[in-house]
Amino acid sequence: MKYYLPLITVAALSLLSACNQNDEPEVVGGPADPMAQQLANAAPVELPPSVKESHQYRCKDNSLIFVDFMSDDKTANLRLKRDSAPTKLVAANPGEPFTAEGYSVEGAGKQITVTVPGKDALSCKA
Rank of each mutant, 00 (worst) to 15 (best):
F98Q: 05
E101Q: 06
V116T: 13
C19Q: 15
T9Q: 11
S71R: 05
S17P: 09
V90P: 03
A121S: 07
E53Y: 15
L80G: 01
A91Q: 00
V114M: 02
T113Q: 13
P49K: 00
D68N: 14
A85F: 00
P48Q: 08
D73S: 11
T115L: 07
A126D: 15
G107R: 00
T75L: 11
Y3Q: 11
A108Q: 13
N62G: 06
R79K: 04
N22W: 15
L39Y: 04
E26S: 04
N77M: 12
F98K: 03
S84W: 00
K110I: 01
S84M: 08
V105F: 03
Y3A: 10
M35H: 10
A43D: 01
R79T: 10
Q21Y: 10
Q37L: 15
G118I: 01
G109Y: 02
V28P: 08
S71W: 09
E101L: 00
N62P: 01
L47Q: 05
A126C: 14
T75R: 04
E101K: 00
P86E: 12
A121N: 01
V116C: 12
M70R: 04
K125F: 08
D72N: 12
Y4M: 14
S71V: 07
N93S: 13
A32G: 06
V90M: 05
P34S: 07
G109R: 05
S17K: 10
I65F: 04
N77I: 12
E101C: 02
Y3G: 09
P94S: 13
T99Y: 04
A36F: 11
Q111R: 13
V114R: 04
N22R: 15
L64Y: 04
D120P: 09
S104G: 12
P6G: 03
D33N: 08
D72M: 10
T115P: 07
A92Q: 04
